[in-house]
Amino acid sequence: MRPVGLYVERRSSLHALDPISKLVYAVCLALVPFVAGDLRVAFVVIVGNVVLLAIGRVLREGLLALAGVGFFLATLFVVQGMVYPGNVTPLVRIGPLVLYSEGLAYALWLTARFVNLTLSAFVLLFTTRPADLVDELVQAGLPPRAGYVLLSVLQIIPSMAARIAVIQDAQRSRGMETEGPVWVRVRAFLPVLGPLVISSLVAMQERALALEVRGFGALGPHTSYRLPWRHRLAWPVRLAAISALLMALVWRLAR
């Protein structure tokens, strides 16, 4: 059963850092280029994110994931290069197509912000179990019911995927073909979907019942089994991230 999310199981100092500090970092650093409004700042932050991904031993995964949106970014350069409203200075001519420097510069600015935002998120998502993050948020004050909803979704999605495999097996053992052309696979959809939906509804009712007898609706304060995540660099990291955002604001105002 593969868990939901991008988390990569590794041992690194970034993995050891508490989830909330990484969340603060990701939010602040993703915003820095937007606030600073300067391409150079964006590049500095991107380099910082790449270094952090390398420290977290997830640089390869991060770059591969980024490459997945490479085509979209390339399209952005072509479209903006041709049709950006402020286009004045032709830079490249390919047959009847003309790419203008203003459009390409704008595309570069958009791309830099997008890449930075993505890499900042990767610093958090590749090195943090989603459940750890939600659990820390609950300990930090998120209502337990909201935390439960988030956590149960994270757990139930992969469990449903595993269940689909079991149901498929059960139907294959009754002679239902699931291998072969597309129409064969489409025809096999209903016998899998039916038991999945019905049993999920039944399970939902039973789980609601089970939650009640496990005190889910109990009044009074809830406690947590997990110890709060402590890391000596937690506050320095959070303060540094917030400072970076403030400095970006100062940079913007000073220009």
Binding site: P144, S152, Q155, R207, A210, R214, A218, H222, Y225
Partner: peptide, 22 residues
Amino acid sequence: TQLSGARLTVEEEVAFGLENFG
């Protein structure tokens, strides 16, 4: 269906009810 569906390890699952009861 008696699982909370929101805990990642067996020991955390056992603790789920106790957390709710504070």
